[in-house]
Nucleic acid binder design. Structure first.
Lengths: 224, 224
DNA sequence: GCTATCAGATGTACGCTGTACGCACGATGC
DNA sequence: GCATCGTGCGTACAGCGTACATCTGATAGC
């Protein structure tokens, strides 16, 4: 029995590329990239799977569009402040965006068809560094170092879903369980006295490393 | 027509977990994680797909084992040298291993069941830093910063399969094509005068950033 | 040498995936 | 009232991971 294109309330909301992409992002935020299937996205939109293909070439094209959504959420370094606070703000903003959209880590820089938000973002960052006195080679150094660290931190942090101390403790026990006690003394000491300390939050490490990098770049810029 | 368990030469080589894992690593090196299917690994071993399940619990278990192979290839910082050259050597060794096994980037730190090579590696790195005078908090800072950078650099470099200048040029043209000229002037300048310069090799950026980080850690260690 | 046993390889089958292809239907232009 | 067209849909297919039952060839006991 074919029914009219309608949502559960009966009002008509035509499918668009934007609605498809937005639903896909939302779904991936919850279920991860693995759980992102065309059929599930279609179900979330109350629509047949094949209906998506009117607005999206294929799954890869959908992911391209999703990545550009993530880029559009990153604060652009446009203000009049110096390069250092601007880069710090961008780094934190990017880290937060990757935290909201963990599925995007690993895809941000690998798109063969970058979207407009992607290009605009890189253009703005490069522009900020250039106008602050970075020559082109130094821009490459800085960008490579900063983005490497930001993405890498997000990556190593991505699969640490321990929100509570108890969860983390159970996890650590589980990891060491198959091995003889004291086979890895340094690792054991580290985990027991640091990682498992109540209130430990790996996220805080990010800003420490970020300052080391920004200071290092500042020093290099001076002696350039 | 069922045939005896034999390879093409007719000699008998029994399937083992090691042979399965090794074949899987080899296959993933060429075809990537997406191309790593149980059926393909089985075919590479001249064996029925279900035969693999005698030696591997499932695909996830197989990947766990593959990751531990990668860890086993990383040079351990064991020598008597100082922490700085030791960390430098480890970083380069890890970078090289990730270059050989690109599929592993993004999985190295996310295994819920780390293998022995994985734990041994982390134990050795932490031990080296501790014996060089890093206190536990500083070990966390250093490890987070170094690994974040190493994995992040590998990640951003992963999907840059331009081996020749011409390839890279074509790629850049392709990326900008859909957009009006001069819409992204800073990005365009950067790409045209730096990235597309003959002989440009992104890989070289790695060591610059690594030195910035090592110097930064050294400074922090002194004022600790 | 014969037979019982059993580990290990296999064949079949199921539910899932992405998506090619052709059709159906409502809105629009005349 | 009719033709056209854009948009959503149904069917179908190949390929995936893997549960489960079965077959087979090597070994152990006598």
């Amino acid at each position: 029995m074919p029914v009219a294109t309608s949502n559960t309330e009966g009002t008509r909301t035509p499918l668009t590329r934007e609605r498809v992409v937005q639903a896909a992002v939302q779904h991936a935020d919850g279920a991860g990239l693995e759980g992102l299937t065309m059929r599930h996205v279609a179900k979330a939109l109350n629509v047949a799977p094949m209906a998506l293909y009117r607005h999206v070439a294929n799954r890869e094209d959908l992911i391209d569009a999703m990545i550009d959504v993530v880029f559009s959420e990153i604060a652009l370094p446009l203000g009049g402040a110096g390069w250092k606070p601007a880069m710090r703000e961008r780094a934190l903003s990017l880290r937060d965006a990757l935290g909201r959209h963990r599925w995007a880590i690993g895809l941000m820089e690998s798109r063969l068809r970058p979207g407009p938000a992607n290009l605009r973002h890189h253009d703005a960052v490069i522009g900020k560094l250039r106008s602050a006195g970075f020559d082109i080679a130094m821009v490459a150094h800085a960008y490579s170092l900063l983005d490497g660290y930001i993405y890498g931190f997000a990556l190593t942090r991505m699969n640490m879903p321990f929100d509570t101390d108890a969860e983390m403790d159970a996890m650590a026990q589980h990891m060491f369980e198959p091995f003889p006690a004291n086979e890895y003394p340094n690792l054991a000491e580290f985990v027991n006295t640091h990682v498992l300390k109540p209130g430990y939050d790996y996220t805080e490490e990010f800003e420490y490393g970020l300052e080391v990098i920004l200071d290092g770049l500042e020093a290099a810029l001076g002696t350039d």
